[in-house]
Design a binder for these strands. Structure first.
Length: 153
DNA sequence: TGAATGATGTTT
DNA sequence: AACATCATTCAT
C-alpha cells in the first residue's frame, strides 16, 4: 500500500489550491467519499476524501498489493503476469475498474465500501516526498508500507 | 528521455 | 478563445 496526502488551498500541489472548483468540489465535501479525476489524457486517479465538509483534503492511493480478484485485475490490465498489477496510481484504477463514474461515491458502504468494518492494524509506515509534484517537493506526504514491494516507481 | 492524449483552470 | 499545466505510463 502506498498513498499520498493532498491538503487544502494552502497546498500548492493540491487540486484544492484554486479553492472550490467544479473538479475539486468533492474534495470540499464530506469525508469518506471517493475523489476520482482524469489526468494526462489517459489515467484516472483514485482518492479518498478525508476532511470535514467545507475543508479540503484527500488521500491519493498510488499502489496496493492485490490480495483478491487477481485474475480479474490481470484481465483488466491485459497482463499475463500477476506482478505489478497495481504498482502505480494509473495502473491501480485500471486494475480496479475505477473510472470517473465512481467520482464522489461512498467508501463507507456499497461496492467501494473499503472502510467498512476495518480494524486498526499495525504496519511499519515509511514517509517520503510526493512523486510527480513540483510544488512542495520536500514535504514528506507519501506513505508506504515498509518493505512491501507493491509500490509505484 | 520523450511521446501519448485530453480535461481543467487561468489568462487574454 | 487560447494556453500552460498536469498527483502517469510505456516504449525507445
Amino acid at each position: 500500500m502506498e498513498t499520498e496526502a493532498y491538503l487544502g488551498p494552502h497546498d500548492g500541489a493540491s487540486h484544492a489550491r484554486f479553492g472550490r472548483t467544479e473538479r475539486s468540489s468533492v474534495m470540499f465535501g464530506p469525508p469518506g467519499r471517493t475523489y476520482v479525476y482524469f489526468i494526462y489524457g489517459m489515467h484516472c486517479m483514485f482518492n479518498a476524501v478525508t476532511e470535514a465538509e467545507g475543508e479540503a483534503g484527500a488521500v491519493l492511493v498510488r499502489a496496493l498489493e492485490p490480495l483478491e480478484g487477481v485474475d480479474l485485475m490481470r484481465a483488466r490490465r491485459g497482463l499475463e503476469e500477476p506482478s505489478g498489477l497495481a504498482s502505480g496510481p494509473g495502473k491501480l484504477t485500471k486494475a480496479m475498474g475505477i473510472t470517473l463514474e465512481q467520482n464522489g461515491v461512498s467508501l463507507l458502504k456499497g461496492p467501494l465500501g473499503i472502510f467498512e468494518g476495518l480494524s486498526p492494524g499495525s504496519l511499519e509506515v515509511e514517509r517520503t516526498p510526493r512523486i510527480g509534484v513540483v510544488e512542495d517537493r520536500t514535504a514528506p506526504l507519501r506513505f508506504l508500507v515498509g518493505g512491501n514491494r507493491h509500490v509505484s516507481r
